[in-house]
């Protein structure tokens, strides 16, 4: 009887210790991801379909096949207030997502049947057992698997950070992604980018209008020869 009580006591002590040790990690692991949403300063200013067409290396209708989370970790110097003295070095991690696309139709450029596009954002976990942190740019939310889009893409193969040794694309900017809804309407990113009214008026509202604007921009491009950005 005494032996049994001791065993039970030992088990209880072990449980409490294990709970204290692993409980917070387990809770963190099981908790919903923290959501981070950033404001981005776009490198490409193309807004209208004509501007996007000029800038794009590839214009396609594509289906999102899969999303692969990838973490970029840099070791950065931490500076003192004088902006010269280095206090220490710290690792900084940034999540990115490789988006696999099945090409359904090509409007401009030559494409393989499946290509990969880069998106900034994804999921980051602080430590192996830490709570997940979901991060994305507000105007360029991560694609959803199975969704269909018309995309204006630039070839970023060889950028030295994401694409060494593989072919990689990204959308020109969030204005270069139009999600195709089943009823023929489009979901663009103009609202998220808070564009002015004049720019908004030029944007297509339906898939049909988008196709017409692409065809018009391409014929103009062919007529005028190569266009400079």
């Amino acid at each position: 009887m005494i032996h049994k009580n001791r065993t039970l006591l030992a088990l209880a002590v072990l449980s409490v210790c294990a709970g204290a040790l692993f409980g917070p990690h387990l809770l963190a692991r099981l908790s919903p991801a923290l959501e981070y949403s950033a404001q981005g300063n776009l490198a490409e200013k193309a807004v209208t379909v004509r501007e996007q067409t000029q800038r794009a290396d590839l214009i396609v209708r594509a289906r999102i096949v899969s999303l692969d989370n990838r973490i970029l970790t840099e070791t950065l110097p931490v500076y003192a207030e004088d902006a010269v003295t280095i206090l220490e070095k710290r690792e900084v991690s940034t999540p990115f997502t490789d988006v696999s696309l099945e090409i359904l139709e090509t409007f401009k450029g030559d494409s393989a049947p499946f290509i990969t596009a880069l998106q900034t954002g994804g999921t980051l976990r602080k430590g192996r057992l830490g709570r997940a942190q979901h991060f994305e740019i507000a105007a360029d939310p991560l694609f959803q698997e199975g969704s269909e889009h018309i995309l204006f893409l630039v070839d970023i193969t060889g950028d030295g950070v994401h694409s060494t040794g593989r072919q990689l694309y990204r959308v020109v900017n969030p204005m270069g992604r139009y999600e195709l809804e089943p009823d023929g309407t489009l979901r663009g990113m103009a609202k998220e980018l808070e564009l002015d009214v004049a720019a908004l008026r030029q944007l297509p509202q339906t898939e049909r209008a988008l196709r017409q604007q692409i065809a018009s921009a391409l014929s103009r491009e062919e007529g005028n020869g190569p266009l400079v950005q």
Binding site: A38, G40, L42, E44, L72, T120, I137, D159, H162, R170
Partner: peptide, 11 residues
Amino acid sequence: YGNNGFFGYAY
């Protein structure tokens, strides 16, 4: 952050 299309961002 490579050729990701953003000069910078803040959150």
